[in-house]
Design a protein around this nucleic acid. Sequence first.
DNA 1: AAAAATACTTTGCTATCCGATGTATATTGT
DNA 2: ACAATATACATCGGATAGCAAAGTATTTTT
Lengths: 108, 108
Amino acid sequence: MKVEFIENWHSQFRKGLLPMFVFIILEKKKCYGYELIQDIKVEFDIDVGEGTLYPLLVRLAKEGLLSPQWEEQPSGIPRKYYSISSEGKSVLASMKTYAGSILKKINE
Amino acid sequence: MKVEFIENWHSQFRKGLLPMFVFIILEKKKCYGYELIQDIKVEFDIDVGEGTLYPLLVRLAKEGLLSPQWEEQPSGIPRKYYSISSEGKSVLASMKTYAGSILKKINE
DNA sequence: AAAAATACTTTGCTATCCGATGTATATTGT
DNA sequence: ACAATATACATCGGATAGCAAAGTATTTTT
């Protein structure tokens, strides 16, 4: 039953949703990339590759929507924490409104 | 307020939704491309370019999800009507389920 | 007769996902 | 002790698909 098509569609759908998922999680708490990959899996049941997420975080930071900050660990590899900026918050709000209005129409 | 970013995001978001919009409309009645562009505008308030929709219809037909059929008109240019196949219907059902689950999570 | 609307197609540009590969450190198993 | 795995970040190339623009052709409107 067109499993390939559906899988590809999921990937396309993610393209639009991923930034929103990132914002939603970062609204609750700041995270580092590796952590986000796991959180997205738990919260949204979606497997995001590192080659997808890291460049996305860099893009969002470049846009001023996320604020990155390196943090040395008492033990282990340093982590690059991201928190959502005030501009990121307003973007998220507008995303939620738009996505909500569209997705509602689907269920009508 | 990052209008560019939001607009680009809208486009990315649509990428995932567009096939679903097409299926939803074709579930009610068969349509030709030019008509679909207008219906999508009315139903979902989204402007789809011809360069977006026509290749999409060809792809969906190639996947066996839509059935195309040329129809000569008593007057005017011939139209290529598309109707949703049974396989297309089951794909749409799985899309709706997935999109619905995502919408729920956004609103939590 | 010119312009606009209808109707489909193709081309080039761009964004972004994703698997693979690379770098480096820390922890766990045997 | 040492190999394997986990943690953590980054980059590259191939593939997908939206979108503006340009192309073809017919019909309707001005």
